[in-house]
């Protein structure tokens, strides 16, 4: 799955390299037309492309599979036969999903930067504020962005974990988790439901650009962290309620 994620920036970079006609064509996702000037933008562009679908998809697969997968293959009860508390099992499963979130974002970002280095010129990076920062600082900011997006995916991972405790069919849990993330993004586009938007776990996903401003706008980082922690708390508690009372038959 990480390989598939790494393919996203590679595809973008190769496609742009092949079709580059020397002038920035309009349209496409944000930052796309800057790649030819600076390869370091490949990582950011790939994240913009990957956030709506690819990242939630893979996180949904991992989180949805976490408990239901064990149940589906009949290994869950063996896990619980050994003296391991159910809370601890849940915490470990969530930690694994969180590590995957980080690995997934870092994969996209690092693969993007590497392919950018290989195919395009690299130099000081222009931020969205119009200021220019050095390569080193831009790499630091790329790391911050990866952390930001990882944080943003934690809420979805918690939802996936909860759904995963509901069923013994891993495919169902994965699909439901991915559907939840897509529904949340669709709702986020409807201006009629604007009052609901700040409560959606997808609300701050694209605000990672605040880390590309000069000076960095930290408020969205904090707001994102609080929101995701609330989701983790709520769905973690629900998952515990369900998992601790569940009769493990498989």
């Amino acid at each position: 799955m990480l390989l598939a994620l790494a393919a996203v920036p590679v595809l973008i970079a190769v496609a742009i390299r092949l079709t580059d006609d020397g002038q920035g064509g309009g349209g496409g996702p944000a930052f796309l037309d800057r790649i030819t000037q600076n390869g370091l933008f490949v990582g950011v562009t790939a994240l913009v492309v990957a956030i709506p679908l690819f990242l939630p998809l893979t996180v949904g697969v991992v989180a949805g599979d976490s408990v239901a997968g064990e149940a589906g293959t009949g290994t869950l009860r063996y896990l619980l036969v050994s003296p391991v508390g159910r809370i601890r099992l849940l915490v470990v499963k969530f930690a694994a999903a969180a590590v995957f979130c980080l690995a997934a974002t870092l994969t996209v970002s690092v693969a993007g930067i590497l392919i950018g280095l290989a195919l395009f010129p690299v130099g000081p990076v222009a931020l969205v504020s119009g200021d220019t920062v050095s390569v080193g600082e831009s790499l630091l900011r790329s790391l911050l962005i990866a952390l930001y997006i990882t944080l943003g995916l934690l809420g979805l991972a918690a939802i996936g974990l909860f759904i995963s405790t509901l069923t013994d069919a891993p495919v169902g849990a994965m699909a439901a988790t991915v559907v939840v993330s897509i529904v949340a993004q669709v709702v986020g586009q409807l201006s009629q439901l604007e009052w609901l938007h700040p409560w959606l776990f997808t609300y701050h996903w694209l605000d990672f650009a605040d880390l590309l401003r000069q000076p960095i706008e930290w408020s969205s980082f904090g707001a994102n962290a609080v929101l995701q922690l609330a989701y983790v708390a709520v769905f973690g508690a629900l998952a515990y309620g369900r998992f601790a009372t569940k009769d493990i038959l498989s």
Binding site: A230, A233, V234, A237, L238, Y240, G241, A244, T245
Partner: peptide
């Protein structure tokens, strides 16, 4: 005892809503 285990599942969302 089963009932007890649902307490956090009710309490935590309630606390989050109250704080919000």
């Amino acid at each position: 005892r089963t009932w007890h285990r649902w307490i956090p599942a009710v309490a935590v969302p309630a606390v989050v809503v109250v704080v919000a």
